[in-house]
Amino acid sequence: MNCAVGKIIIDADACPKAVLEICQKISGIYKVRLITVASFNHQIKNSEHIVVGNASQEADLKIMNIAQENDIVVTQDWGLAAMLLAKKVQCLNASGRVFNELQIDFLLEEREIKAKQRRAGGKTKGPKKRKLEDDSAFEQRVLEMLKGPLN
């Protein structure tokens, strides 16, 4: 496979262990650099791990600073994904959902609506429980992204 990606970066503060393991396997096979970024509150086993403080958005800022065009970033953070898309960085979440310019505005608007609801005392649903199919979908999507940017 001709690899069109510079590196894979994982926003590891909220990353499932299975996703980290999949990325480590793929980076080893395809010789793609893998960087994990997390606060010092997390114990991440990766040869290229960047530890940041636990201040709000600290990991996100570090990822923004090191991500470059055509890198792949794994994150659950829609705001971070929106900023990275502007830098032409490929973004996906831990379930294999690819973020793109067409839907990111909708996702950010949804996030704001849910935040307002919570501030007003309402409840919102959390993420769905992770399934084995999520691991398969994630791995397949990363392999597709290694070939080049998905449109």
Rank of each mutant, 00 (worst) to 15 (best):
E133H: 14
A120N: 13
A86L: 12
A137C: 13
G121F: 12
L84D: 00
E69D: 10
L85P: 01
A120F: 02
R97I: 05
M83H: 02
M145N: 14
S56N: 15
D77V: 08
F138Y: 13
V142M: 07
A115S: 09
E69S: 09
L108F: 03
P149E: 15
K123T: 06
N70Q: 13
I50R: 09
K147W: 01
P149F: 04
G148Y: 06
K128N: 07
V74T: 06
T75I: 03
F138G: 14
E133F: 04
A81P: 04
A86K: 14
G122N: 12
S95F: 05
V73F: 04
D134R: 12
W78L: 05
V51W: 00
D134C: 08
G79P: 03
N70D: 15
K116D: 13
E101Q: 13
K88E: 14
A55Y: 00
K131V: 10
S56C: 09
D77H: 05
R118S: 13
K128D: 09
T124F: 03
A81S: 15
M83D: 03
A94V: 10
H49Q: 13
S56E: 15
Q140N: 11
K129M: 11
S47V: 03
C91D: 05
L143S: 02
A82T: 00
L102P: 01
K114W: 04
R97N: 12
A81E: 01
A137L: 08
D135C: 15
L92Q: 04
M145G: 12
M145Y: 04
A59F: 05
D134L: 08
V74W: 04
E139C: 15
A86M: 08
E144F: 10
A59D: 06
A86N: 14
L102M: 10
Q117F: 00
K114Q: 14
L143E: 08
I63A: 12
A55V: 03
R141H: 00
V51M: 06
W78A: 07
I63C: 12
A86R: 14
A67F: 00
C91W: 04
D77F: 05
S136P: 00
G122T: 09
A94L: 01
L61W: 03
L61N: 10
L80H: 04
G96D: 01
P127I: 02
I72T: 09
C91F: 11
D135W: 06
P149I: 10
F99T: 05
K88A: 07
Q76S: 15
G53L: 04
S136K: 15
L92P: 02
A81Y: 02
K88V: 04
N54Q: 05
T75S: 11
G148V: 07
V52R: 00
V98G: 06
N70R: 11
S56H: 14
A82D: 00
A94H: 07
L102H: 12
K116F: 05
F106E: 12
N93T: 05
G126C: 11
D60Q: 14
K87R: 15
T75Q: 02
G122I: 12
V73I: 05
N70M: 06
D134E: 10
